[in-house]
Every structure is written in structure tokens, then in C-alpha cells.
């Protein structure tokens, strides 16, 4: 009670009363608070001076802090502080740190990169992150692909060739696989015969009579399979026509089918419907030549390189 009296004597009120007797003290702000506020004002002034701040005419005041960087043309430029210029310096620094490795990658032939223990370590780590970022969405983290969609990069069968040069070519320009839908030119029986023939090439359970008929059809002008897959059905890498005589399946999910009938049916599906989905994007615009070279060696070393 006495304390209240004391305070009401020393502290001003705002001078108005609500509901007859409700008054409001006009206490000063705590000193630390006031000075902190002044400090923020000073901070703002300093900040305005250093960094871009006020709009001015058709532009703005850039502030006194500058960033100097080297651009892709090799010109040294200075610009008032901003995040885009900051990115330039960041990229410059990173480029300097990585340059020895990327220069070596650019200068060395593929075989030599793969045989240099230091470079091999760099390829494994840099390639892994490049692969994860750009390739794994389709070919999966380990490069094993998805049957029916994207080829396995770890086996020894290649649609377009597994040499360093061919892998490089695929990465640069992309690929587009195509096989016409044979349901438009062949009847169901003929397609079944072809499917049995293809199955027989890989030693899958099949109907021998149908396979024999399929063999003839395969090499005839009616179906003309041999144009792309060659007459011994080993495929043509220059057009991405797969080898039909090995155990590797991409478009027809033969391994998933448990019965011989199922396997033949999967092959029949591909022959009948054709394929227009073997699309590999071109990476030349997205990745630098050195990055593509790193990926080339990385993919080659995934196990299937030839």
C-alpha cells in the first residue's frame, strides 16, 4: 500500500482516466532498451552505407562495399555488393580449387585418367555426385537402371556402345531409341512366332515350330527385323538396336516373368507395341565438357566399360 503511494507520487501518469479511476503510468522505457534502440538506428545507418539500400532515380545507391570477380571472358570486373556478384567470387574460388583436377581431366586421355590412382579417386567422388544429381533419376543411384525404362549401365551390354568415346557421345548429344509398332504390319500369329524366335535366341523356353517360323519372318522383308537387329540378331550399336541373343533385357521385362509363357508374352508386347521411349537427354548444354568427361569415365568404371 505504502509502495503504491510512493510510486504514484514519483511517476507521472498519462493524464487521462477511464471508467472514472483507471489511470495509466507514464513510466520511462528501460535504459538498456532505449540504448539498444539507438544502436539499431546506428547499425542501420552503417548498413545503408556499406550495402545497396535506397532507391535513387532509375537505380539505387550501391553502397561502398565492392566485389571484384573474373567472368567467363576472363575480364576482371568490380561491382557494388550483391548476391549475384558474390556468387561469381564463390564460383571463382571453387573453380580455382578444382581447376588442377579438371585441367588434368581435360588434358589426359581416358585410359590414363582411369589408371592414375589420384585421378581415379577424384573421378569416383566427383563422378558420384554428378551422377547422383543428373543421371540417377533414370539410371538409379548405382547405375543399374530400370527394366522397361532405362538401361543398366553396370552390365556389359550396350545399346550404343560402351567405349569411352561412345559413352561420351551419348552424354553429349543424347539418344533417341525407336522401334515401330509391328501390330500395324503383322498379325497376332506372326508376332507370336517372332516372339518365340527371339526367346529361342536367349535359350528361353519356347515353341520350336513357332520359333522356326519366326526365324524365317525375322529375316524376311515382311517384318524386316534384320535391318536393325542384323541377320544374326546381335544388334547394331550405331542405331541403338539391342543384341537379342544375350541374357540382358531392357524393354521386355523377361526376368520378372516367372513362366516361359510370361517371358514370351513380354517379348510379344514389345514387338507388337513398338518403342518410342528410349530417350536420353543431351547434356552438352547443361554440363561443362570437363564434367561430361568425368561422367564418361565414371560410367565406364561402373563395371561395364569396354
Amino acid at each position: 500500500m505504502s509502495e503504491q503511494k510512493l510510486q504514484s507520487q514519483t511517476v507521472q501518469t498519462t493524464g487521462h482516466a477511464w471508467d472514472g479511476d483507471l489511470q495509466e503510468y507514464n513510466n520511462p522505457l528501460p535504459v538498456w532498451w532505449v540504448y539498444t534502440f539507438y544502436a539499431t538506428v546506428v547499425f542501420a545507418l552503417v548498413y545503408w552505407t556499406i550495402y545497396p539500400s535506397w532507391p535513387f532515380g532509375k537505380g539505387w545507391i550501391g553502397g561502398v562495399s565492392n566485389i571484384t570477380y573474373v567472368n567467363s571472358e576472363g575480364e576482371t570486373r568490380t561491382h557494388s555488393w550483391n548476391t549475384r556478384a558474390l556468387l561469381m567470387t564463390d564460383m571463382n574460388q571453387a573453380a580455382v580449387a578444382q581447376k588442377p583436377y579438371f585441367d588434368k581431366v581435360a588434358a589426359m586421355p581416358y585410359e590414363q585418367i582411369a589408371q592414375d590412382p589420384d585421378m581415379s579417386g577424384f573421378i569416383i567422388s566427383a563422378g558420384k555426385s554428378l551422377f547422383a544429381e543428373n543421371c540417377a533419376a533414370c539410371h538409379q543411384a548405382g547405375g543399374q537402371g530400370v527394366i522397361g525404362f532405362f538401361p543398366n549401365l553396370t552390365d556389359d551390354d550396350w545399346l550404343y556402345g560402351g567405349s569411352y568415346e561412345k559413352i561420351h557421345e551419348t552424354l553429349l548429344g543424347g539418344r533417341r531409341g525407336y522401334m515401330p509398332a509391328f501390330s500395324e504390319v503383322l498379325n497376332g500369329e506372326q508376332i507370336d512366332q517372332l516372339a518365340n524366335y527371339v526367346a529361342s535366341l536367349s535359350g528361353i523356353g519356347h515353341d520350336a515350330d513357332k520359333a522356326t517360323a519366326g526365324d524365317v519372318l525375322f529375316h524376311s522383308e515382311t517384318a524386316a527385323c534384320f535391318y536393325c537387329h542384323t541377320s544374326d540378331a546381335t544388334g547394331r550399336q550405331d542405331m541403338g538396336a539391342p543384341n537379342l541373343t544375350d541374357n540382358i533385357w531392357l524393354w521386355a521385362d523377361v526376368p520378372a516373368a516367372s513362366t516361359a509363357e510370361g517371358k514370351v508374352a513380354a517379348i510379344r508386347g514389345v514387338i507388337s507395341g513398338g518403342l518410342n521411349k528410349g530417350v536420353m537427354p543431351a547434356w552438352s548444354g547443361r554440363l561443362t565438357p570437363e564434367q561430361i568427361k568425368v561422367l564418361t569415365v565414371y560410367v565406364h568404371e561402373l563395371g561395364g566399360g569396354q
Binding site: N134, A137, C138, Q140, V146, F149, F150, K277, V279, M280, P281, R286
Partner: peptide, 21 residues
């Protein structure tokens, strides 16, 4: 845009985990 093929997008939109486990 252009990073993946149309087929990838279609398959991925229908069943994302078949493409990205």
C-alpha cells in the same frame, strides 16, 4: 525442363517411387 525425358516424367508422376526409390 529438358533434364529428364517425357517418359521419365510420365512414369514418375504415375509412380514416383518406381523412378526414385
Amino acid at each position: 525442363g529438358g533434364k529428364y525425358s517425357n517418359e521419365w516424367h510420365v512414369q514418375h508422376l504415375v509412380a514416383p517411387r518406381s523412378m526414385v526409390p
